[in-house]
């Protein structure tokens, strides 16, 4: 025991920090979700489950939830498929592939706020590069009011989210692909398997753990995409891009309803946990052995 004491001291600072900056605020948030605290007043009332009951029928919260699910679905679908396709093309370790992987990774190191500003200009209906490019290519009928059309704005933002993080996911997939023994793929080809069959029956089962990681990470990222949405649309027009994180921010810091915002945060946390758990269950594969 005496010999272990110094070791305990090594992880104590980390533990103290974890308790102070994660556990304590989380438990405080849970506590405040049962109060009517406005974030400023020294006192507050205990309101029981009122905040949660209000959330159940709150129009804007429901819109934010639906938008968030649309956003998540679009991001997870685009980001996973595109990063997998790119990873399949870039898996071989050549100089060109290494350079391309770095290139695709660059957006991930930019701040979301910068990405948001850049894409706001690209999407601008009057001066934006995207509509200008489409018009130059004779595709003016494809031009859209990308962030101003309530029907497509959430998908336009989702596209940016996917663009910004595809590079990261490519790295995860490439790591998964490179871990697959080459002799397995070779023997599958020698057995006469087509490219699709080799992918479907050999590559994909062995890549499933990486795919599960990519999907769950992307899901969590898409729920936490506050800064991108805030910078690009602020939740508008008319709540069409309001997502849970912007709803919580507005409720806490513009409406000064911290208790209500804390309740929304708890639901938010629970939702991410449930969706991530379900995804892991759906993508869980038996250990593949050959």
């Amino acid at each position: 025991m005496r010999r272990r004491r110094p070791l305990i001291l090594f992880f104590l600072p980390g533990l103290v920090l974890y308790l102070a900056v994660f556990v304590y605020p989380t438990l405080s948030g849970l506590y405040y979700s049962f109060t009517d605290w406005d974030g400023l007043s020294p006192s507050h009332r205990f309101v029981g489950l009122d905040n949660y009951l209000r959330l159940a029928e709150h129009i804007v919260f429901q819109k934010a939830l639906v938008n968030n699910l649309k956003f998540m679905a679009a991001v997870v679908f685009c980001q996973t498929i595109l990063s997998l396709v790119l990873a399949l093309y870039l898996q071989r370790s050549t100089h060109v592939n290494a350079a391309l992987r770095s290139l695709y990774f660059i957006p991930a190191i930019l701040s979301s706020v910068s990405v948001g500003f850049i894409w706001t200009f690209i999407y601008d209906p009057s001066f934006g590069m995207l509509n200008n490019l489409l018009e130059s290519a004779g595709l003016s009928s494809w031009s859209r009011n990308w962030l101003g059309d309530a029907g497509i704005a959430i998908y336009a933002v989702a596209g940016v989210q996917a663009w910004a993080h595809i590079g990261q996911m490519v790295i995860l997939f490439v790591a998964g692909l490179q871990a697959i023994p080459a002799d397995l793929l070779e023997s599958a080809k020698l057995d006469g398997g087509t490219r699709w069959q080799v992918f479907r029956h050999v590559t994909w089962p062995l890549l499933a753990p990486a795919a599960a990681l990519v999907v769950s990470y992307t899901t969590i990222q898409s729920f936490k995409a506050f800064d991108l949405v805030f910078t690009m649309t602020g939740g508008g027009p008319n709540y069409s891009t309001e997502i849970l994180s912007t709803f919580i921010y507005g409720t806490a810091f513009s409406s000064f309803k911290f208790g209500f915002a804390a309740a929304a945060s708890c639901v938010f946390l629970l939702l991410i946990a449930v969706i991530t758990f379900l995804q892991f269950k759906a993508l869980r594969t038996e250990r593949v052995t050959y």
Binding site: I59, D149, A150, G236, P237, N238, G250
Partner: peptide, 30 residues
């Protein structure tokens, strides 16, 4: 602030094609 947002949101709604009556009713619900 949420009332403010509902009010300005109703303006965006009519510019997006909703009728003034419908946009006003949706905002009033909030």
């Amino acid at each position: 602030a949420e009332v403010q947002k509902a009010v300005t949101g109703s303006i965006q709604a009519v510019l997006a094609g909703q009728t003034p009556e419908q946009a006003a009713a949706d905002a009033q619900a909030i």
